[in-house]
Structure formats: structure tokens, C-alpha cells
Deep mutational scan, measured.
Amino acid sequence: MSRVPSPPPPAEMSSGPVAESWCYTQIKVVKFSYMWTINNFSFCREEMGEVIKSSTFSSGANDKLKWCLRVNPKGLDEESKDYLSLYLLLVSCPKSEVRAKFKFSILNAKGEETKAMESQRAYRFVQGKDWGFKKFIRRDFLLDEANGLLPDDKLTLFCEVSVVQDSVNISGQNTMNMVKVPECRLADELGGLWENSRFTDCCLCVAGQEFQAHKAILAARSPVFSAMFEHEMEESKKNRVEINDVEPEVFKEMMCFIYTGKAPNLDKMADDLLAAADKYALERLKVMCEDALCSNLSVENAAEILILADLHSADQLKTQAVDFINYHASDVLETSGWKSMVVSHPHLVAEAYRSLASAQCPFLGPPRKRLKQS
């Protein structure tokens, strides 16, 4: 649940008159999402009104509101027999009622949201009550392989729920002597030191190019640089560091992050930047690179990204790559990247197969709970 924001200063709310007192009302909304995959969808019983329910879910471990999704594969009634019906059901509720908006969509073979439908307002739910769409999607369109909505005969539904909580009022009075504290510009100011090479005390040599930097900042941000300058190493004695395995453009992006906490060109060089972040123990930059690479996972590059993640101990990226390969196994196994990995990294192939087997055979063990970014 997000923290209630402070109200904007009255002088910034309007260029008009300023009242002596004010009130700011925040209506709290808890948002969460749920993904439900139905394997072997074409084998569902086709009687009209037949119901399939998901397991229950909530916004978190401490949330007492429990929900589930309900599907009628062949419609709810005679009117909707040519459609799939989809509903959000409130299973248990400690209150007399709650209000919530919802959005349903289908994830296609690429994991993209399609055929989205959402409620136009927050509906009133009581325990045992459901709301949804009797005519969510035509069955003939859903079952047509050309539309790519049932890869490997799996129907994957994605649901986003927004639950309306209580409202909170914050009130106060205006004073004539309003003090406005300026925003912190530390990142910009440190970035200026790097860009202008002011007050530098060490030189970093990268592929024949020299960059002036500040030992204190490098040591504070990177345990690797800290070790170089702290001990009686040649880098500490000469205040000069030779860097041979990072390209200059990648190095500059890494230094921008060290000084400012930002990497504006990360998406263009996420793979190389991940390697640099791993070498210099820049954990936050490493996770930022993992996130960017996750966003660009595809059938063509899944094997290469899995190898990269394994090489640099990028655990979150590795998990996402394995899950992606499992979901698109029939396509990924035909790529040149996968065939190369079979020869060069057989242990990763074995890991992917083990994960695929456990996903398809849940009876082999208890269900695993899916539970950071600093």
C-alpha cells in the first residue's frame, strides 16, 4: 500500500486566492494483479454453464480479502454459449462490502496482453458476489490457432484489481511565511564533478583513453575500487588504474551511474553493462540491467540471455529466462542460440529441462510459493 502523499503547497495549487485553511483528501486504492494459466484448455468440458475456478489470491499475505477468477468455457447461458465468460469473485471478506475495479486480458504466445476488457467503474462486491463479462471473447476466435491465444493449448488470463480503501483527510492552515525547501541536487552536482573533471585525484585508463576521477567517490560506490585504493596496490601508489576489459562507451555509462545513480543509455548496452556491474560489484546497476534484459526477452535471444545471466550470477534474470524458455519451449528449441547452448553450456540445458519437467508435473513435489530491489 502506498504512503499517503503530503498535500501540495497551496501557493502551487492555483494562481488564484489562497485560503486560510485547507483539506486534502486521499482515497486510498490498493492495486494488484494475478495470472492464471489453464493447461490443455481444449479438453475443458463443453457443457453450457460449466465452471472452472482459479485458486484464491489477494494483494498480499496480510490481506484478508480473498478473490478468485471464474471461467465458463462455453458461456454462462444460452445467450453467451458462443463466448467464454469471465468473472472476478470475492471469496471471503471481513467487511460487509468492498468496491473494486478490474481489468481482464489474455496473454498471447509472446506474453503480450490482448483482448483487454475492464470495468468502467468500481463495482460493489459482497462475499460470494462476482462481476465480469458474460461475453468476454468469442470461442471461435479464441480457438483459432492463427490468433495465437492458446500457445501449446494453454489459456493464460491476466487480471488487474484495484480495491478502494478508506479515504484519509489531511488538513492544515496557511501561513504568510511559507518556506520552500529546494530539491536535493546531489546527483546532478556529483555528475558535474565527473563531467568537468574537477578536483580529480586519479586516472582511469580504458582502451587508450584516459578519464579523470575521484578516488573517494569510486571507493564509496564500488567495493572493488575501494579494495584497489585501500591496500598497497599499484593503483593506490600511482593513482592510476588500467581497465582492459570494458569498452570506453560502456565504461562511461558505468561511471555515470557511479556518480549519479542513473544510467540513461542502459537499454542500448544492458548486456555489456551487466558484465561491468558484476565485475565492479555495483549491485543496483546489475539489477537494473537484469530488468532491462528481462523486458527484451524473446524467442530468438532467450538462450543467449540465459548464458549471460549464468555467467554473471544474475539470479533474477536467470529465473526469468528459464521461465520464458519453459513457456515458449517449442519455439526456443528451434533457435540457433539454443542449439549452440546445447554444445557450449549443457548444464544450462539440463537446468531448463528440470524446470520444465517440474512445471508440467506438479505432483512430483509440493507447490512452490512464489514470493528486491534495493
Score class of each variant (00 low, 15 high):
Met1Tyr: 00
Pro7Cys: 14
Pro8Asn: 07
Met13Arg: 04
Ser14Cys: 08
Ser14Asp: 13
Gly16Ile: 10
Trp22Arg: 06
Gln26Gly: 06
Val29Ser: 10
Val30Ser: 01
Ser33Glu: 13
Tyr34Val: 12
Trp36Tyr: 08
Thr37Leu: 08
Ile38Met: 02
Asn39Gln: 13
Asn39Pro: 05
Asn39Ser: 03
Asn40Tyr: 01
Gly49Val: 01
Lys53Gln: 09
Asp63Ile: 03
Leu65Pro: 09
Lys66Leu: 04
Trp67Met: 02
Trp67Pro: 00
Arg70Leu: 12
Leu86Ser: 12
Leu88Thr: 07
Val91Asn: 11
Pro94Thr: 08
Lys95Tyr: 12
Ala100Lys: 00
Phe104Arg: 00
Leu107Cys: 14
Asn108Arg: 14
Ala109Lys: 13
Glu118Val: 05
Ser119Ile: 01
Arg121Ile: 15
Phe125Leu: 00
Gln127Thr: 11
Gly128Cys: 13
Asp130Asn: 01
Gly132Asp: 01
Asp140Ile: 03
Leu143Glu: 13
Lys154Ile: 09
Leu157Gly: 00
Val161Pro: 08
Val163Met: 06
Val164Asn: 04
Gln165Phe: 03
Asn169Ser: 03
Val179Glu: 02
Pro182Cys: 03
Glu183Ser: 08
Arg185Tyr: 01
Leu186Tyr: 02
Ala187Lys: 11
Glu189Gln: 08
Glu195Gly: 02
Glu195Asp: 04
Glu195Pro: 10
Asn196Gly: 07
Val206Cys: 14
Glu210Val: 02
Phe211Glu: 15
Ile217Pro: 10
Val224Gln: 11
Phe225Cys: 15
Ser226Met: 15
Glu230Gln: 10
Lys237Asn: 01
Asn244Thr: 07
Asp245Lys: 15
Val246Gly: 04
Glu247Trp: 09
Glu249Val: 02
Val250Ile: 02
Val250Pro: 06
Phe251Leu: 03
Lys252Asn: 05
Phe257Cys: 08
Phe257Leu: 06
Gly261Val: 05
Lys262Arg: 04
Asn265Ile: 01
Lys268Thr: 01
Asp272Arg: 02
Asp272Val: 02
Leu274Gly: 00
Arg284Met: 09
Ser295Leu: 14
Asp310Ile: 04
His312Lys: 15
Ser313Lys: 09
Gln316Ser: 03
Gln320Gly: 03
Phe324Glu: 02
Asn326Gln: 13
Tyr327Asp: 09
Ser330Arg: 01
Val332Pro: 00
Glu334Cys: 05
Gly337Leu: 11
Ser340Phe: 09
Val343Asn: 07
Val343Cys: 03
His345Val: 02
His345Gln: 01
Pro346Lys: 01
His347Ser: 05
Ala350Arg: 12
Leu356Arg: 07
Ala357Val: 03
Ser358Gln: 03
Gly365Tyr: 15
Arg370Cys: 09
Arg370Phe: 08
Leu371Gln: 15
Leu371Met: 04
